[in-house]
Simulated scan of single mutants.
Amino acid sequence: MEVLKVNLKNAGYYDKKDAIKDIHFSILSGGLVGLIGPNGAGKSTIIKSILGLMEDVDGDVTMGQGSKYAYIPEHPTYYDELTLWEHIELAKAVNEIEGDGYYQEAEKLLTIFRLTAEKHQYPGSFSKGMQQKLMIIIALLIKPKLYIVDEPFIGLDPKAIKDFINLLKEEQRSGAGILMSTHVLDTAEKMCDRFLLINYGNIIARGTMEEIRGQSVSDGSLMDCFYELTVNDHG
């Protein structure tokens, strides 16, 4: 089942309306797709177009019927006047989640990410990594059909990265579809089923790791393929 279908002829900004061009892909239930590309390639524009945050979009984005999504941004966003626990309570109310199991799951995730002692503190006093953990916890609590994850590993310590990967894999096994943009290519290669390689606003390669190797004429790692494909691509 498709949880996301993207058909964008072009999208961009007032001074560059075709920052991305001919972006077509879908994500299936239980699929994990890596969105890979250098800085300025168009990854953020693609994500913003999916989220409905771009004004100039020629195309359409369709989420599966009844699909609820969670977005984990590169830069954590939070309410200065709410504590960590109040953010968790707010997410429950906004998403109309019933039952006490939600709070039990929240306590479990706070323990995993070592934030139990900070549950009644304000995120503004947290490190970037702690703020990112809050974004991850809220996304996991929502239990969406689709995760849109933008550079999730920045600021996280190695244990938190490992825990997050394991939890994301659990969600994938439960049928969630995941779109993950990241620069951490060795981790992406191990995690993702399929890849979209973006450069100069275009998809320059797509598919499984084997298919990416075939398109790059390289038998190496995702990093090797990424280098081969982008160094010879001039838009």
Rank of each mutant, 00 (worst) to 15 (best):
Met1Cys: 00
Asn10Leu: 11
Asn10Ile: 06
Asp15Lys: 15
Lys17Cys: 13
Lys21Asp: 05
Leu28Tyr: 10
Leu28Val: 08
Gly37Glu: 10
Gly37Thr: 11
Pro38Met: 10
Gly40Lys: 14
Ser44Leu: 01
Ser44Val: 07
Leu51Cys: 05
Gly52Asp: 00
Met54Thr: 11
Gly59Ala: 07
Gly59Pro: 01
Met63Gly: 14
Met63Pro: 10
Met63Ser: 13
Gln65Glu: 14
Lys68Ser: 15
Tyr71Ile: 11
His75Ala: 00
Asp80Tyr: 03
Asp80Glu: 10
Glu81His: 13
Leu82Glu: 11
Leu82Thr: 08
Trp85Lys: 00
His87Ile: 00
Ala93Arg: 15
Val94Trp: 02
Ile97Ala: 04
Gly99Thr: 08
Gly99Ser: 07
Gly101Ala: 03
Tyr103Gln: 05
Tyr103Pro: 06
Glu105Gly: 03
Glu107Tyr: 14
Lys108Met: 15
Ile112Leu: 09
Arg114Lys: 13
Leu115Lys: 05
Thr116Ser: 14
Lys119Met: 12
His120Tyr: 12
Tyr122Leu: 11
Pro123Glu: 04
Gly124Val: 13
Gly124Pro: 10
Lys133Cys: 03
Met135Arg: 12
Met135Trp: 00
Ile136His: 02
Ile136Glu: 02
Ile138Cys: 07
Ala139Tyr: 02
Ile142Tyr: 07
Tyr147Ile: 11
Ile148Ala: 08
Ile148Met: 12
Ile154Met: 01
Asp157Leu: 05
Pro158Glu: 12
Lys159Asp: 15
Asp163Arg: 05
Phe164Ala: 04
Glu170Ser: 08
Ser174Met: 10
Gly177Ala: 09
Gly177Ser: 09
Leu179Ala: 04
Ser181Cys: 06
Thr182Arg: 02
Thr182Asn: 01
His183Gln: 13
Val184Ala: 07
Val184Thr: 08
Leu185Arg: 02
Leu185Pro: 02
Asp186His: 08
Thr187His: 04
Cys192Thr: 01
Asp193Pro: 11
Phe195Ala: 06
Leu196Phe: 12
Asn199Thr: 12
Gly201Ile: 00
Asn202Gly: 11
Ile203Ala: 11
Gly207Leu: 06
Glu211Ile: 09
Gly214Gln: 08
Ser216Met: 13
Ser216Cys: 13
Val217Asn: 14
Val217Arg: 15
Asp219Gly: 15
Asp219Arg: 15
Ser221Thr: 14
Leu222Thr: 07
Met223Asp: 15
Cys225Phe: 05
Cys225Gly: 00
Leu229Ile: 09
Thr230Leu: 07
His234Pro: 09
